[in-house]
């Protein structure tokens, strides 16, 4: 489905005592259903701001955000994942995963609990449901965080540099993990990252932003074979072509030493 998520002519300013920061100006783009759209851009250009807008945590100064044809309200069904997994250390994995259900007063809903059980079993966390987060590896924790959002059957998944706190090895594995889960659960994903390789290997399309105030610089279709895992895509012969393309677009954008991670 085209234009499942649509941002229309969005502007947003932050106000502080020091002054006004125009983070986004007349930004428009849209995402299709079941696609994985990555957003890359210079740091501080407004990527996190875009996700906050889509999630309804922030209101735009101007413009509108439409999800599935409806304006974003207060209680939209979105799943949000952050830089670190943000699991609550004092809750068991099961209690962490069902946090959203608890908040929505659905913790006793048979159907929801069945889904939780299915997700935990399907993605290898069932035996750890009574463990505490500190007993799990970084990859497993990230998977638990993903399941926590999937329990609520979100209409869209927002990822804000969710792999940036992981070491390189773990990151490659977690990317494969998350990619297969997302594909299997048929999620629509908007992911922010500063890692070009990650963006290419995970995404259907990559959106490059200008520096602040963010506008769409270009959108690049990634036409790597869909049946490959992210790790396999990294080995594909076309991979470096995409890398160079995005790298150049970003380099034009960066000022001074405002360098972008490889």
């Amino acid at each position: 489905m085209k234009d499942y998520l649509k941002l229309n002519d969005i502007s947003l300013s932050y106000h502080t005592k020091e002054g006004e920061t125009l983070a986004l100006e007349n930004l428009s783009f849209s995402a299709n259903k079941n696609e994985y759209l990555s957003i890359v851009g210079p740091s501080g250009c407004g990527k996190t701001t875009i996700l906050s807008l889509i999630s309804g945590l922030l209101k735009p100064s101007k413009g509108e955000v439409l999800l599935d044809g409806e304006a974003i309200g207060k209680n939209v069904d979105i799943g949000y994942m952050f830089q670190r997994d943000q699991l609550f250390e004092w809750r068991t994995i099961y209690k962490n995963v069902t946090l959203g259900l608890e908040l929505k007063k659905k913790a006793k809903d048979e159907e929801c609990l069945k889904r939780v059980e299915y997700l935990l079993k399907q993605y290898g966390l069932y035996e750890f449901k009574n463990s505490y987060p500190s007993e799990l590896s970084g990859g497993m924790r990230q998977r638990a965080a993903l399941i926590r959002t999937l329990c609520l059957e979100p209409k869209i998944l927002l990822l804000d540099e969710p792999f940036s706190a992981l070491d390189y090895q773990t990151k490659l594995n977690v990317c494969d993990d998350v990619h297969s889960i997302i594909t299997e659960e048929k999620q629509t994903v908007i992911a922010v990252t500063h890692d070009i390789s990650e963006a290419i290997s995970m995404s259907d399309r990559v959106l490059v932003l200008t520096k602040r105030p963010a506008k769409v610089k270009c959108i690049i279709d990634i036409n790597l074979p869909k049946n490959l895992t992210p790790l396999e895509k990294r080995e594909n012969k076309d991979f470096s072509k995409y890398f160079d393309l995005i790298w150049k677009e970003l380099s034009n954008e960066k000022e001074n030493n405002n360098s972008i991670h490889k």
């Binding site: 906050s52 999630s55 945590l57 209680n75 979105i78 799943g79 949000y80 952050f82 830089q83 670190r84 943000q86 609550f88 946090l99 959203g100 608890e102 908040l103 929505k104 609520l152 927002l158």
Partner: peptide, 19 residues
């Protein structure tokens, strides 16, 4: 980010406080 997570899952202020 933990607070934002709670909000993104629809938590009200009471829930943020107690949970």
């Amino acid at each position: 980010d933990k607070i934002a997570l709670m909000k993104s899952m629809g938590a009200n202020k009471f829930q943020i406080l107690f949970k």
